[in-house]
């Protein structure tokens, strides 16, 4: 009897010691995860265990997609095909106009020595899950470090800006949506270029609120908000949201402006990740060289840039 008591007693003490140790370890982890970046590597390693869970959790959605592809009637396909062909024709026509406009715009910007529009190729991705925490509006996409995703990368849907990557895992990444209360998107009004910051509203509503809009700023219901490109995260000129209400209360310091995001944040599955072009500075120099004459020649010292200018000049001679 005595022996058993003693054994139980020892066990109890050991349990408490271990519990206290692990509590302290948890507290340290929470602190370190908030303050330092080093915990990212631990997350990254643990994410290998998490990847199969995401993969299986996404199976039903993938299966239903597959079923939709397999069980579709011939007439439906024909109708869809002709509709898509029409859309493509329209889009190509618009693209032709856009290209000339874009090159003209770039020349003008180069003259003005303004920042070049962020351009680059896009990588297709799919949303496979959403955050179980209802307060944070985050989604999980099926692209990760192995696909070259990085923190801060912008995510777009077909109809507008969606959010930015906040955490990269081996094969998946978390993307913070523009409607998250902790996310601020630099925007401008398409009509007149008034700048503002759009923050997500907390709660269930999927709307944005413009911060610090003064009473004299010209923002109206129905205005389109586009990304202003400030902050260097999002590309310029992508549609973000439509203004749905403007409340001008003289007693308040600022006008309350609400906007609804263009992108269908809750129903889109297919999205795009923007990959900024790596040759961006050189391209910009080319535009400068093209646009400016003496000033640019003085500025250019690299032999590399000389070569590119020679190429340009040759192109012009031809």
């Amino acid at each position: 009897m005595k022996v058993i008591d003693k054994a139980l007693f020892t066990k109890g003490v050991a349990l408490e010691y271990r519990a206290v140790t692990l509590v302290l370890l948890s507290a340290f982890l929470m602190f370190a995860d908030r303050r330092f970046d080093t915990m990212q590597s631990l997350r990254f390693a643990l994410a290998y265990a998490a990847t199969p869970v995401y993969w299986v959790a996404d199976l039903p959605a993938r299966t239903s997609d597959l079923m939709d592809d397999v069980f579709v009637s011939h007439t439906e396909l024909v109708v869809e095909n002709s509709r898509l062909r029409n859309e493509l024709l329209l889009a190509q026509r618009e693209l032709q106009v856009l290209e000339s406009l874009a090159s003209e715009n770039n020349r003008l910007l180069a003259l003005d020595e303004a920042t070049r529009i962020v351009e680059g190729e896009v990588v297709a991705a799919e949303i496979i899950n959403q955050s179980p925490d209802r307060q944070s509006k985050k989604v999980l996409i099926n692209r990760g470090a192995q696909d070259g995703v990085f923190v801060g990368q912008a995510m777009l849907a077909a109809d507008g800006l969606m959010g930015q990557v906040v955490e990269v895992m081996p094969r998946t990444s978390w993307v913070l949506l523009v409607t998250d209360p902790l996310h601020v998107t630099p925007v401008e009004v398409n009509r007149n270029g008034e700048r503002a910051l759009a923050r997500g509203l907390s709660g269930a509503s999927d709307q944005l609120e413009l911060e610090f809009v003064t009473q004299t700023q010209d923002v109206r219901v129905g205005d389109l908000l586009i990304s202003s490109g400030m902050g260097q995260v999002f590309p310029k000129n992508y549609p973000v949201a439509d203004v749905v209400s403007v409340l001008n209360d003289p007693g308040q310091d600022f006008t309350v402006v609400r906007a609804r995001p263009r992108a269908q944040l809750n129903s889109t599955r297919h999205v795009m990740l923007l990959r900024p072009s790596e040759v961006e500075p050189d391209v910009r120099d080319d535009y400068l060289d093209d646009a400016l004459t003496e000033e640019a020649e003085e500025a250019v010292t690299d032999s590399e840039h000389d070569e590119s200018r020679e190429e340009l000049e040759q192109g012009a001679q031809e």
Partner: peptide
């Protein structure tokens, strides 16, 4: 199955939910 197992299970859950590291580890502990 002891404290260490529960704690590690919570840590994986933290990563899975994309939340702050250590929260679920502590509660499961």
């Amino acid at each position: 199955i002891g404290l260490g197992f529960a704690w590690a299970a919570g840590l994986v859950l933290d990563v899975l939910e994309g939340g702050l590291l250590g929260v679920n580890a502590l509660t499961l502990l």
